[in-house]
Amino acid sequence: MELDRRSALLLLTIPLLFLVAFFAVPFFVVALESLRTSDGAWSLAQYAKLVSSWFYLDVLWFTFRIALWVTLASFLIGYPLAYYMTRVVKRRWIKRLLYIVVITPLFTSNIVRSFGWMILLGRRGLVNDSLMALGLTEYPLQLLSNELSIVIGMTYIMTPFMVLTISAVLQNIDITLETAARDLGANPLVTFFKVTFPLSLPGVIAGTLIVFTLTVSAYVTPSILSGGKKTVMSMLIFQQYAAIFDFQFGAALSVALLFTTLVLISLYRVFGKPRSRKSVKEAAA
């Protein structure tokens, strides 16, 4: 037992050292930098500047609003697809083909995919041409350089993460629980909402957390698809560091974004705890 404990601690040493060296220490440096002024004095002036301006607060709210829309859209697309891949498709080679289709976009750069959506959503792009050909609109719609274009592009990029996370949980759910619910008189819809969906909540929570955090910190896709007309926090932080050279305020924006994200994630995990297997069995009965 003592040897196993030492082996576990030894295995954890390298990951812990990696986190300390490349996350904890840089974050500590950034946090300290955010508490200083341009002349080196210690102050909360950077945070006062942040909370006293509606512009920065609006950018922060816009960033989280985009992340929420992308998370919701990824869930609405990803859950049915994950369910179809794990529960409906029976042939193994078709499942493998679907998984390949889902993960293939991950091997392409975000820059390439973002420019692809610029072509699709342009005034003479495939989407507008299709809408006009179907008679749904007489003029090309403004689908680029707005919030909608960012949500569409980010949803396309983030949906594979949602699908893979949820499908990993769905394929491990004991199918006899669903069979028991059906034997007790539950129809397929009731069985899904009373048994399958509650048991898949760990995958839903993990998937939504992954999508939300990745979207909050995204830079390339929002900067390309917004056309410079919309600003998210990652773009604002980059401007402070690379264009304005206000490192102290850039650090304050970084800390504020990370702190707000951690608070939202903590609240989500507290109020979004999945039901236990025992409670699901009782509900099915």
Rank of each mutant, 00 (worst) to 15 (best):
V127P: 00
K49V: 15
I94N: 08
W42P: 04
I100Q: 14
Y79L: 13
T86R: 08
L57G: 12
L76M: 06
A168K: 04
L141C: 06
L57R: 06
I150Q: 09
R65A: 11
W93F: 14
M154T: 06
R124P: 00
I77V: 08
S43H: 00
L50S: 13
S149L: 08
P105A: 03
N146F: 12
V59H: 02
F107V: 11
S74Y: 07
W117Q: 01
P80E: 00
K90A: 01
G153D: 13
Q46E: 04
S43K: 09
S109T: 06
G78L: 05
R124K: 09
G135V: 00
N146H: 00
R87A: 09
Y139G: 13
L126I: 11
D58A: 15
V169L: 11
V151W: 07
L44P: 14
M118L: 15
K95G: 12
G153H: 03
E147Q: 13
Y79T: 13
A82P: 03
S130F: 07
S74G: 10
T71E: 02
A82N: 06
V112A: 06
A168L: 12
T108A: 14
L50W: 14
L134M: 10
Y156P: 00
L60F: 04
I103T: 15
N110A: 15
I100Y: 14
E138G: 15
G122W: 01
S43F: 04
L144D: 00
Y79Q: 10
P160H: 06
M154L: 15
A67L: 04
R87I: 03
S109R: 04
F64V: 07
P140G: 02
D58E: 08
L131C: 08
Q171F: 02
M85E: 09
Y99D: 13
M132D: 00
S130G: 04
